[in-house]
Each structure stands twice: as C-alpha cells, then as structure tokens.
Design a binder for these strands. Sequence first.
DNA 1: CGTGCATTTGACCACCTTCAATAAAGGTGG
DNA 2: CCACCTTTATTGAAGGTGGTCAAATGCACG
Lengths: 252, 252
Amino acid sequence: MVAVEKVRCVPGSANDDASLDLNAPLCENCNSRHVSLCGVLKDIELCEMSELVKNVTKHPKQIICSEGDNPEYLYSVKDGCVRLSKMLSDGRRQIIGFLFMGELFGFACENGYSCTAEAITNVDLCRMSRRALFEKFEKLPDLGHKMLEITQTDMDNACGQMLLLGRKKAKEKLCSFLIDINKKTSKIKDLSEDKIYLPMSRSDIADYLGLTIETVSRQFTILSKDCVISLCENTDVTILDRDRLNLIASGE
Amino acid sequence: MVAVEKVRCVPGSANDDASLDLNAPLCENCNSRHVSLCGVLKDIELCEMSELVKNVTKHPKQIICSEGDNPEYLYSVKDGCVRLSKMLSDGRRQIIGFLFMGELFGFACENGYSCTAEAITNVDLCRMSRRALFEKFEKLPDLGHKMLEITQTDMDNACGQMLLLGRKKAKEKLCSFLIDINKKTSKIKDLSEDKIYLPMSRSDIADYLGLTIETVSRQFTILSKDCVISLCENTDVTILDRDRLNLIASGE
DNA sequence: CGTGCATTTGACCACCTTCAATAAAGGTGG
DNA sequence: CCACCTTTATTGAAGGTGGTCAAATGCACG
C-alpha cells in the first residue's frame, strides 16, 4: 500500500542482453497480468518474473514456435490472437486452439512442442524460459500450482473439443465454436455482449472444426438465413438468438 | 539398503475408517508404483502417500466417477482397463481415452470431473483425496512437478487425438489406434511384441475414433484381408506388417 | 437348445467433401 | 486512380466416405 517509484528491480544478469534492453518488460505494468499465469503473484513477487521474461512481437502468419522443436520457451499472449495447430505429412491440418490475451502456450513433452504456434493478428507475447520458470516453482510454489490448474483447464477444454470433433454435426460444431469464442473474447474485448469477434479465416475455422471451408461457409449462411446469427463482415458476427445457438451447439 | 520389516507407517488418523482397514494399501508393495505418479517418490516418502490413498475395486461396466460430479478424488489405475468418456444429451458418446496400469485420472475444472470413468475389465484402483494430494505438494514438491508433467503429456496426447478425430480417414484412425494401444500395453503386459490386447468392445473403439461400430468392423476386416493384421479373437490382434500399419496411420 | 448380446456383412442413403465457377476484398505497380 | 493479380469467401453440382438400417452369424450362458 506504500507508494513506490516504478523502478525495475534486479535488472541485468538473467537477461543475456543486459542493461538497456527495451524488450525487458515491466511485469507490474503488464495488461494481461491479472488474467494470466502471473495472476497468482503478489506485486513484490513480480520482480521474480521480470528476470525471466522477454517481450516478443509477431505479425500475422509469422511462426512463433514449431511442433517438435526444442521447447525452450513458454509464451503468454499479451495481445492479439494465436493459433495452435498440428499437421499430417500430406498437409492436412488440425487447429488445436485459438489463444487470446492471458492464455499460455508452448506445451510440450519429450518429443518437443506439441503444436505449431502462429500469429493470426499482430501479437504481443511474453516469452519465458521454460527451465527458468520451472526453477521458480521452488521459490514461488503458487506459480507451479497455477500452471497445473491452467494445464488441467486446457485438458478439460480438449476433452470438450474431442467430443465436438468425434460426434457433432457440422452445424453443431459451428454453433459450439461461436459460443466458445464469444465467451473467450467477451472477457477481454469490450464488445457488446452478443458480438462475436472472429480474427481467424474461414480456413482456420474449418481446420479447427474438422470441416472444409465450403461447409463452414454454408453453415454460416444457413444460420444467418435462420436468423440465429447475423453476418456483418467476415470478422464480425452478431448473435440474434442465443437460446437457439446454445440448443443447436449441445445437439438439439 | 537396510532390510526393514514391512510395517505400515503412521496408520490411522488420515483414513477415516481407522485401525483395521483392509483397503488401506501399503504403497511400498504397489505393483504400479514405478510407472505411476508415485514413481518420483523415495521409499521413505511413500509413507506420506499411504496416508491419503485407499484401494478400490470395480467390475466391468461399473462407474468410477461421473462427468460433472464434485471431483473429490483422483485415481490411479493399479490393474485393468478404464475408459473415460463424455456424452451429448441424446446419447452420442465420445471416448476420451483408455487407461491402463499406472495412469492417472479424475481431472477436473470448476465444473467438476471432465469425464465419466468406467471400468472395462476388473479394475484395481488407488483412490486419492484431491485436496490431500494437493496439500502434499508443499511437503513433496516433486509430486506436484510430476503431476504437471503427467498432465502435460496427457495434453500432448489429446492434441494428437484431435488431429486424428478432425483429419484422419477411418482406416488411418484404426491403424493409429492399434499402434497406440500396442505401445501402451506392451509396456505393462508381457505379450509378444506384435500382439495387441484389446479389452474394449468394438463400440468403445468406435466411440473413441469418432466412427460407428460397423465402420470399425469393416476396417478390421479390410486390414486383415490386406495382411496388415491378423484377427484371432476380438480381444486379440497381431500385427503382421508394422511398416504398413505405421504408414497408413500417419496418412500414407 | 434357446435366449441375448456383440460382431460382421450387405444394401441403401446422407452428410460432407471435392471440384468448379463466381464474387468480393486486398495489394502492387504503372 | 485504376488495371491487374492474388487471396478469401460464397455458391452450385457431383461424388464418395462413412452412416443408417436390417439381417445373418457367432458366442456365452442358463
């Protein structure tokens, strides 16, 4: 509660490129601070984080990390939208998720990163050394617990997505997707409650839902004709009948 | 390295049903000990676990825990096979995974258990209080780290399964499944390298792969006619041509 | 031997894909 | 500023993979 000057604490050593690093962030000023992994940390503990993070910016279509690569870093989305995906050798692609502000990615096992991550919009990222972060769990056990909680929530979402991919019809898939994205983005963008912000392409949506772009496009048209949604631009949809949308999404 | 008498350490207080509880396990004698969460614990630390676990046995088709229920417990499979699943209101089912010896389940978020867990075979389980386990992370941080590692590996597998469900053809799905099960069970059953043990029904396989039983059955027949596998009984398959199987699984 | 359940097999059909044409939007260079 | 090209989305027609329905087979159990 004491007013303190915003000076960076312990600059230097941990950041290879030491003293005047413009990319070294001030975690206490971070916009996504309260919705991200760091949400569990007290103000004074944020210094610990500042030591091991670095700001990174990416433009649309730039790759952030690739499936199978040495998973040196974890990333947290500070702003923008990121897609995670996996590919088969012949080019078939499955999008695993779309990430917005506050969401963490870079999960991996002994085979390297599980997914490729690419920027969809302009993206601001917080890049953390995985090793350094895991070492911090000693000093800040809450950080480790939060990490576990996040991963378990991811797993819960993954289960829901498997149900969608394996058992839902095209129309149900699209409705589920619209509800999920609406839930996610309404927290972080100040849009009217029924606006859905869709920064990703039809092709991304198709690869997320296990469909083709043509099927996605047709279902958009049908939902629009049935007055469940209204299509303004491609990136901008409005929910007209939320009850119907929910009913269709959960399988009538 | 010192020979000690196998006496239970600290019996009582933590187990509600105190003194003469036959279900209170001796963790040091546990078969699945070295392939499970407890693999990270030293002998003397196992006592800590004995306090919070209980043995549970289930018969085929018995429910262990249900989607949405208060996630009081975590479970580790000591023996047998468990299926995790999610359902839509009209009965469509998606199986999220098949678990064998050493595997952990009971994952949950604020909405309760993510999945329903049912016994496929006779099953021996180690049941842990979630709360008590999470409290142990203070004293045994390695346990928390192992838990995180397990959850991340689960997440990695889930990503692979999403790729399968969204983008693979029926034949590719079945081949992928056979390879995965072969990998899993060869570690814990002493079967000849190319034998695949399938305790689950065709209906379970179908619901795992996002197909119908008829399609699964047809694909089994085709693979058999093409001499990729050989079908002895329904629970017993032999790999005849592992290279072909791998090629088909990864999409030609 | 008959009942009940799981699996296999066949015939038909539908949902979604594939292929193709068109329209709309965005970027580049003259 | 507009012609030109590329990229993205929509729409239509045709086709195929896998689903639905139905019957047959196999197997366990009383």
